[in-house]
Nucleic acid binder design. Structure first.
Length: 408
RNA sequence: GCAAGGGUGGUCGAGUGGUUAAUGGCACCGGGCUGUAAACCCGGCCGGCGAAAGCCGUACGUAGGUUCAAAUCCUACCCCUUGCA
C-alpha cells in the first residue's frame, strides 16, 4: 500500500526507539530535532548551513504566521514553500493551533474555528480546520498538522475535556478537508522522488530525497491533547487514533505545567501511541527534556529554544547552559562547548562571542543560534547511535549528569 | 580681556528652596526564555551593615554664607562652551 511517508523502527531499547522516517523530500533518522522556522526561515541560520554543515533534514513552518504574511496566495504563486524559500528538504507545518493558545488575548474561539485579530495590523482573520488545511496545502509541506486547541498546562479537568473533544472534532474536519485537498491536487509541494535518489543533489533534487514507493502527497498528523490528566490523554488518544493519521503528536505540554507532570504524561501516553507511526512531542524542549522524552518513546521534537535563546545570549552545551553575557567570559579563550565540532566552536572563543553580543553585533545572535541548533541536532544523533548500539541507558545517565555539573 | 551660557551619580541628561540618594536614556551586572506577537522581557546599578523592612555614611565644580531646610538662593574662586575684541 502506498503512503505519503514511510516509517520504520530500526532499533529499540526500553521505550526508546531509533527509526527512519522517509518523506517525499528527505530521509529523517530519529530521534530527530526539527528546528523551528516559523516564517519560512530559521531565525539567524541560513539554509546553506542547515544543509551542508548541520544536515537538518526537516524544519518547521507555521500556518498562522505565513497566512498573515506573505499569505498563502503569494506562496502558491511562488510555487509553494519549497520553491519560495529554496529549502528542498522536508517541512512540517504547524497548523496555527498553538497560536490559539499563545495569542489568547487576540482571538475568539468557537466550534467553527478561531477568529484572530492579526498581531501585525489588527485586522480580523479566521482560522478553522478547513482553512488551516487549505493554507497548509498551499504551503506544500511534507507533514501537515491537524488544527487543534492547546489549553494552558494547568487547565482543570472539565475545561480540558471540553477542549480535547473540540480538538477531536476539529481533527475529523481536518482529516476530511485534507483528503479532499489531496485528491484535488491542491498541494503545491507534490513531489515524486525518482527511485534511487536517496543522495542525489546534482539536478536540483533534494539531498536525501525519499526514494520511490511514496504517494508524493502530504502526510497528516493528529494531535493528542488532555493537559496533565492521564485519563483525558487516553481519551484523546482513542479519539485521535480512531480517525487515523500518518503520525501522532503529543500537544499541550511545556505550556506552564510542572516538569514532573510533563514527564509523567509522556511516560503514560507515548508507549500507548501506535508503534507503527512516528510520535512527535510538540514544542519540547530543553536538552534534558529531549533525552527524557526519547527514553519514554518519543521520536520527533521541535522547539524554539536553540534559536530564541541563541538570539538572547543563551548557549546550550554538553556541560549545561551558559549565558554568554556573563562577565566571567570576558577573556575566556575556550569555545562555547569544547566537545562541539560545529564551525562556530571550531573557530571562535567565548570571549569573542561575548564581545560580539555586548556590542550588539548580529553575528553574535546568528553564531550562537548556529551552535545551539548544532548541539540539539547532534544530541539527537548521539541518542540515536546509542539506541542502535544498545547503550542508550548509559548515554542518558552520562548526558544528564554532565548537564548538571556547572558549565566551565 | 569683555559678554552670555554652563559645570549633577560610569556616561549623556532632567531637576532650579522642602515627599531628592536625586526622573529618564545609555553603559555596566545578573536572571528569564519550551508547536516564536521575543535580535526580546524582567531585575539591580554611591558606599557600609542587613534575609528584608530599614539604619548609618557620603554626594550635584571648590570654599564659604543665607535659611528650620540648599543640587536648587547669595559671595568668592577654579574650569568649560560660544560670541566680541
Amino acid at each position: 500500500m502506498e503512503n505519503p511517508i514511510n516509517w520504520k523502527v530500526e532499533a529499540v531499547e526500553g521505550e526508546a526507539r531509533a527509526g527512519r522516517l522517509i518523506t517525499r523530500r528527505s530521509v529523517i533518522e530519529t530521534p530527530v530535532f526539527m528546528p523551528v522556522g516559523t516564517q519560512g526561515a530559521i531565525k539567524g541560520v541560513r539554509f546553506e548551513w542547515l544543509e551542508d554543515e548541520l544536515d537538518a533534514r526537516i524544519i518547521l513552518g507555521n500556518t498562522y504566521h505565513l497566512f498573515l504574511r506573505p499569505g498563502p496566495d503569494v506562496i502558491r504563486k511562488m510555487g509553494g514553500l519549497h520553491k519560495f524559500t529554496t529549502w528542498n528538504r522536508s517541512f512540517l507545518t504547524d497548523s496555527g493551533g498553538f497560536q490559539v493558545f499563545s495569542l489568547t488575548d487576540l482571538r475568539k474561539l468557537s466550534e467553527e474555528g478561531v477568529e484572530f485579530r492579526s498581531h501585525l495590523d489588527g485586522s480580523s482573520k479566521v482560522l478553522s480546520p478547513e482553512i488551516s488545511m487549505e493554507i497548509q496545502a498551499a504551503l506544500g509541506s511534507e507533514i501537515v498538522m491537524a488544527f487543534d486547541e492547546c489549553p494552558p498546562g494547568d487547565a482543570g479537568f472539565e475545561r480540558t475535556r471540553l477542549s480535547l473533544e473540540l480538538t477531536a472534532r476539529w481533527a475529523k474536519r481536518s482529516r476530511t478537508r485534507f483528503d479532499e485537498l489531496q485528491d484535488s491536487g491542491a498541494d503545491s509541494g507534490r513531489f515524486f522522488p525518482p527511485s534511487g535518489s536517496d543522495s542525489s543533489d546534482s539536478a536540483g533534487l533534494p539531498v536525501h530525497a525519499g526514494g520511490s514507493g511514496l504517494t508524493g502527497k502530504q502526510a497528516l498528523f493528529g494531535i493528542i491533547q488532555g493537559a496533565g490528566h492521564n485519563e483525558l490523554r487516553a481519551e484523546s488518544l482513542k479519539l485521535t487514533t480512531d480517525i487515523g493519521f500518518d503520525g501522532y503528536a503529543i500537544g499541550g505540554l511545556s505550556v506552564g505545567e510542572r516538569k514532573d507532570v510533563m514527564y509523567e504524561v509522556i511516560e503514560n501516553l507515548a508507549p500507548k501511541m501506535p508503534g507503527d507511526a512516528p510520535r512527535y512531542l510538540m514544542g519540547v524542549g530543553t536538552p534534558e527534556d529531549l533525552i527524557e522524552a526519547v527514553a519514554r518513546g518519543v521520536d520527533m521534537f521541535d522547539c524554539v529554544m536553540p534559536t530564541r535563546n541563541g538570539r538572547t545570549g543563551g548557549v546550550f552545551t554538553s556541560g549545561g547552559k551558559l549565558n554568554i553575557r556573563n562577565a566571567r567570559f570576558i577573556t575566556d579563550p575556550a569555545p562555547l562547548d569544547a566537545e562541539c565540532e560545529c564551525s562556530v566552536c571550531r573557530r571562535y572563543s567565548r570571549a569573542y562571542l561575548r564581545h560580539l553580543y555586548q556590542a550588539s553585533e548580529m553575528t553574535a545572535a546568528t553564531m550562537i543560534s548556529h551552535h545551539n541548533v548544532s548541539f540539539f541536532l547532534t544530541t539527537m544523533k548521539l541518542a540515536r547511535a546509542a539506541i542502535v548500539e544498545g547503550r542508550f541507558a548509559a548515554f542518558r545517565n552520562g548526558f544528564l549528569a554532565r548537564l548538571i555539573e556547572s558549565a566551565e
